[in-house]
Design a protein around this nucleic acid. Sequence first.
DNA 1: TTGAAATTGATAAACCGTCTCAATAAAAGA
DNA 2: TCTTTTATTGAGACGGTTTATCAATTTCAA
Lengths: 143, 143
Amino acid sequence: MSKHVKEMGVLKEHLGKHQLKFTRQRELILDAFLKQEHITAEEMYHQLARKDPHLGLATIYRTLNLFCEAGLAQARHFGTQTQYDNISHKGHHDHLICTGCGKIVEFENCDIERLQEEVASRNGFTIQTHRLELYGLCSPCRQ
Amino acid sequence: MSKHVKEMGVLKEHLGKHQLKFTRQRELILDAFLKQEHITAEEMYHQLARKDPHLGLATIYRTLNLFCEAGLAQARHFGTQTQYDNISHKGHHDHLICTGCGKIVEFENCDIERLQEEVASRNGFTIQTHRLELYGLCSPCRQ
DNA sequence: TTGAAATTGATAAACCGTCTCAATAAAAGA
DNA sequence: TCTTTTATTGAGACGGTTTATCAATTTCAA
């Protein structure tokens, strides 16, 4: 049923290493999570309400944080809420954020990514993921 | 007394344009703010408690937000709190972060910054500040 | 199958930041 | 200067998001 075999494996490995258990809820939430690029706990709560009306919000928060620890997700604080980014969707996590009106534009730039790789390898690092946010004013907000 | 003549001028100009008033609290908070690279409202509250024990936390939040509108500060959500960055400190805060051992390497790369400017202008934005974090494994952690 | 240990769901509580409002202070006018 | 108008302040209430609590349940190894 699940098509996310690789990520499921990552999760199970993490669980095994930390004496944690593989539950129906964790499987359900991971499946839903991997279908998106990023999501908030609240959004997921509503999405899953139909599949499992008794799934608690606290469980979703706990599980998304678990995914962060397992290296499957990355938390990002946006406005008042926390966005959980799907790390397996590489290259789509860059944002232009208007400090005037809050507008967010997503972008992708291969040249920047290539330079990031260079910086990393020069320092002996292998990049798993990254976060790039540019803050400024969009043209309407500049008047 | 105040050494921040230029920034005080920026503030006064903004106040004038918006029918706002120059108050003792705003002067006090701006002076304290400009001495730091970035600060939270809570931190400033404690810092200023000695100088003015009756200065309210709400006033600090309001004033820091005012500084953002005036272009003197930049709000950034970090962890659960909001950091207010001093824009006049144009330091580059790019980081390489090892997800294995937590080691952090700071770096600066002009080419990346130039590309960021390009992306921004292509989207009609003017960059005030940015944040770039690369997550990965350092060579010892890769074994 | 049993039992120890982790997880869950429901909700209370904590936390951060904003809103409210009466009292006060700042600018503008006479 | 004195008065008047208007914005600001401080204190605490409030609202939204995330975490903590805890009894009941589920997982999993023996």
